[in-house]
Simulated assay, not measured.
Amino acid sequence: MNNMKEYEIYSDMKVPLSSTIILRLDGRGFHTISKNLNLKRPYDEVFSFSMAKTAEYIFKEFSPLFIYTFSDELNILLKEIPFNGRIEKLNSVFPSFASSSLTLNLNESLDEKITLPISFDSRIIPISDIVSYFKWRQNEAWRNHVNGYGYWALRKTLSKHEATSKLNGLSSGNIHQLLFEKGINLNDFPLWQKRGIAIYKKKQHNNKNLNNENNNKSNKYSNNNKHEIFTDLNLEIFNNEFFESIFGKYF
């Protein structure tokens, strides 16, 4: 009998261990899950903070450099690549870990329990210009913010098709004006909705954890008890200075 192991022809595909990669996870079918759980639109605080908590779990398990999340998306920056860089492992373990973590987090926070499976897809992105990548994703978070409030404001009086058609071709400025005329000022909403949420390591004396937990002395994930995982709900606009403040002269 032939060695069946020989049929695992993709199992040896690896990311070069000297490279820097971003693993981007995107929620699959989250529109249906959101409707099933009756989440608030366009933003549900419980869901968004559960995504941030999921990112914290990933950070503790795999020690990435940085995670950025908005909507149903997780962007995981890895320099020390686990699983010896095996692509099959990276593209299976990370999304399955995220799926189970998010399920646990939502079930802890919601009265309505999840009855549909949660899943993420995954892609590996070799990266050299980290700043440009995260600026691109943060710009997407801002577009989602503007369009999301525009769409759901219109849905109060228009059908799904009518609201989508009305938004087509409108600039961000036009949508701002449309919302303002309906009594909605985007400046009134929290920064995490506009700019997303980031998880990274920060010196303890500056820490304001999402859960306000004071675990400075016992945090086994800290670096010699000098840094701990920090969930940033008030992000700056991404630029070189922001990332240098986290990584030093990493770039």
Rank of each mutant, 00 (worst) to 15 (best):
M1W: 00
S11E: 13
L17E: 10
I21C: 07
I22W: 09
G29H: 06
G29D: 04
S34L: 02
N38P: 01
Y43I: 05
A52K: 08
E56A: 10
K60W: 03
K60M: 08
F66H: 09
F66W: 13
Y68W: 11
E80H: 15
K89H: 04
N91H: 00
F94G: 01
S96E: 14
L110F: 12
E112D: 10
I118N: 01
D121C: 10
I124K: 14
I125F: 12
I125Q: 09
W136K: 05
Q138N: 09
E140L: 14
A141T: 12
R143H: 09
R143S: 08
Y151Q: 12
E162N: 11
E162M: 10
S165T: 13
G169F: 09
S172F: 12
G173F: 00
N174T: 00
I175D: 03
Q177M: 06
L178E: 10
N187H: 11
D188A: 07
L191D: 07
L191W: 02
W192M: 01
K194N: 01
G196P: 10
Y200L: 05
K208F: 11
N215S: 07
S222F: 02
K226L: 11
E228C: 05
I229Q: 04
F230Q: 14
D232Q: 07
L233V: 06
L233H: 07
L235K: 05
E236I: 05
F238Y: 15
N240P: 00
F242P: 01
F242N: 03
K249Q: 12
